[in-house]
Structures are given as structure tokens and as C-alpha cells.
């Protein structure tokens, strides 16, 4: 300490240093607590500021009219966003139908099938897939995949044309930019996140259960069916919900490949739009109430994704607790 200039009262000096040190400790504690609270602060601010700014659009249409209105016509000041909600749900649900089984398969391959040496490479591939920027997926999607896949869409539409029901869902295609293309891109982007959570979930399956299944003479697949999957069901539901939340909020890749028409079509080969993609597409050319409406869509999207993510984390955590409780 620097305050050693008063040798006649060493006890006092010591106390001074002690008090300062305690103060430093308290200050540090306050600082890190504040840093931790930033998370809550930012989330709260997002909700408040965007809601305030989007309020005029909510009021203009009425909350129900905004969410469930089917006509989006910024030039006439009509802002019904139901087609966007429809597009968001359709694309991300189809994406999950593809991504969830594939991700579970990859996670099983990594944890149960692959040797130690190959495991590392597969994990690297999945990690790299997660780091590819979404705009690059969009670029490859719109300039490579769309032209290449359009004939395949047409072929499939012709194939199912005589089948009632299916022919309405898979009908004529014009550009190749449509719900299905968007879903494919979303599926690829959701695979890494679902895979990583699924791996965590599988890692919590007690080794004794697996060994017990093998000891009873189970094949690997029977062990997976009997020991791993029943244990992991809750966690896998949570993982799928996290993937769903991610897919619903994905913006740029979808904006490039979905075609950008605000309409609701049962035909998945027709262009549509999603909430996030529409904000990005119309942002540059919007003003006034139109901008407010785009921000209001952001509020809606924020609410949906936060709820889904929150529920997903709860589900994953409960599944983990249940597992650890059963084990110890």
C-alpha cells in the first residue's frame, strides 16, 4: 500500500487499505452485476422501443386486423400480415420435417456409430455448416439451386397431377423461388443447431442403460430405440423447437429464395413471403406508416421467437434434470 508514510499508527493505515480494498471489491461486484443485467436490459428495451414505434401500425389496423388481416398493400395503407405468418409457419415447419430426422441421425452417428477419429471430422463439418453466413446460402440458393431445381419441381408437379389433394399442394411452378426452396435452405441452416443440442441430450443418457441393452443382446439399432430415444424424447422436442425458432427468424437467405409475393397459396411451388424476409425486402423503400408496420412485424416476430425459445429451453432443462435425477 502507498499509505505507509504514517508509521506511528500502522493499525489505522491497515484499516484504510482494508476499507479501500473492500470498496474495490464492492465496485467490481457492482460492475459485473451490471454487465450481467445488460442481457435483461437489452431484451426489455427491444420489447419496449420496438412496440412503441410499431404501435401506430397496430392501432391503424387493430391488433386482430394486423395479425389476421390477409391483405398487405402499403400503398393503400392496408397492413394485414396473416399471409406472412402463414409463410413463416409453412416454411419453417417443412424445414423441421426435413431437418429434425436428419439432425437426430447425425447426432446418433456422432455419438454411437462413428469412430473417435472420424467423429472429429463430422463435428467440424457441422460446425462449418453453422458458420456459413446466411446471405451466402441465399446467394447459392438463388443463383445455383433455383435454376437447377425448377425442372425437378415441374416434373414432380406433373407426376402428382392426377392425385387429388397432392396436386393442389404441388402445382405449377413459375420461377423456382417458392416455399419449398425456402424450406430447403432453412432446413440446412437449422441442422447444425438441432444436431448440437441433440448431441448434448444423447450425452446425458446413462452409459449403464446402453450397456444393459447390449447385455440383453440388443443390436445397436435396438439399443438406440430402447435406451437412447425414450430417454431423450423431451430433449429432442426442445432441440426441434430451438431449430424452429431459428428458422422462423431467418431473414436474408429466405428473402433471396422465396420470391417475395405476399399471398397465401396452398401450392408450395408458388412464391410467398415470410415475416422476416418481408422486412428486409421492403425496408429500403418504406416510409411513414409502412416503416412502422414493418417494425410492428418485427415485434410480432420477436414475441413469437422469444416464446418458442423460452419454452424450448424449459423443455430441454426439464429433460436434463429428469435424466440426471434418474441416474444419481
Amino acid at each position: 500500500m502507498t499509505a505507509t508514510a504514517t508509521p506511528e499508527s500502522p493499525a489505522e493505515v491497515d484499516l484504510g487499505g482494508e476499507a479501500r480494498a473492500r470498496q474495490a471489491d464492492r465496485g467490481f461486484r457492482a460492475l459485473v452485476t451490471l454487465a450481467g443485467l445488460t442481457v435483461l436490459l437489452v431484451l426489455g428495451l427491444i420489447l419496449v422501443t420496438t412496440s412503441v414505434r410499431g404501435w401506430p401500425a397496430f392501432v391503424h389496423e387493430g391488433p386482430l386486423g394486423f395479425v389476421f388481416g390477409t391483405r398487405w398493400a402499403p400503398n393503400d395503407d392496408v397492413f394485414g400480415t396473416f399471409p406472412l405468418l402463414y409463410g413463416t409457419l409453412v416454411t419453417s415447419l417443412i424445414a423441421m420435417v426435413i431437418a429434425v430426422p436428419v439432425s437426430i441421425g447425425i447426432a446418433l452417428f456422432i455419438t454411437e456409430v462413428a469412430h473417435r477419429s472420424t467423429r472429429k471430422y463430422i463435428v467440424t463439418v457441422i460446425d462449418l455448416l453453422a458458420t456459413v453466413p446466411s446471405v451466402v446460402f441465399g446467394l447459392v440458393g438463388v443463383l445455383v439451386v433455383v435454376p437447377a431445381i425448377t425442372p425437378a419441381y415441374q416434373w414432380f408437379a406433373d407426376l402428382v397431377a392426377p392425385v387429388p389433394g397432392l396436386n393442389a399442394v404441388f402445382d405449377e411452378t413459375n420461377t423456382g423461388r417458392n416455399y419449398i426452396t425456402a424450406s430447403l435452405v432453412l432446413a440446412i441452416m437449422a441442422i447444425p443447431i438441432i444436431t448440437s443440442i441433440a448431441r448434448e441430450v444423447f450425452a446425458t443418457v446413462p452409459e449403464t442403460d446402453k450397456q444393459a441393452a447390449y447385455a440383453l443382446g440388443a443390436t445397436r439399432w435396438e439399443m438406440v430405440k430402447g435406451a437412447i430415444l425414450p430417454h431423450s424424447f423431451g430433449g429432442l422436442v426442445g432441440a426441434s423447437m430451438l431449430g424452429l425458432g431459428r428458422a422462423m427468424g431467418e431473414t436474408i437467405a429466405v428473402a433471396l429464395v422465396i420470391g417475395g409475393s405476399v399471398s397465401m397459396s396452398a401450392n408450395l411451388f408458388e412464391p410467398g413471403n415470410t415475416m422476416a424476409a418481408l422486412i428486409a425486402q421492403q425496408w429500403g423503400e418504406s416510409s411513414g406508416l409502412h416503416t412502422d408496420a414493418l417494425i410492428a412485424i418485427g415485434v410480432e416476430l420477436f414475441a413469437i421467437t422469444v416464446i418458442i425459445n423460452f419454452l424450448a429451453r424449459l423443455v430441454v432443462r426439464r429433460a436434463e434434470i429428469k435424466m440426471k435425477g434418474a441416474h444419481s
Binding site: T50, M248, G249, E250, F302, T305, V306, I308, N309, A312
Partner: peptide, 11 residues
């Protein structure tokens, strides 16, 4: 914080 990682970037 976990929930915040899921907030869409456009938001």
C-alpha cells in the same frame, strides 16, 4: 441469455 441467442438478427 439463451433466449437472446434465438432473437432473430433482423429484430
Amino acid at each position: 441469455a439463451d433466449v437472446m441467442t434465438g432473437v432473430p438478427s433482423i429484430v
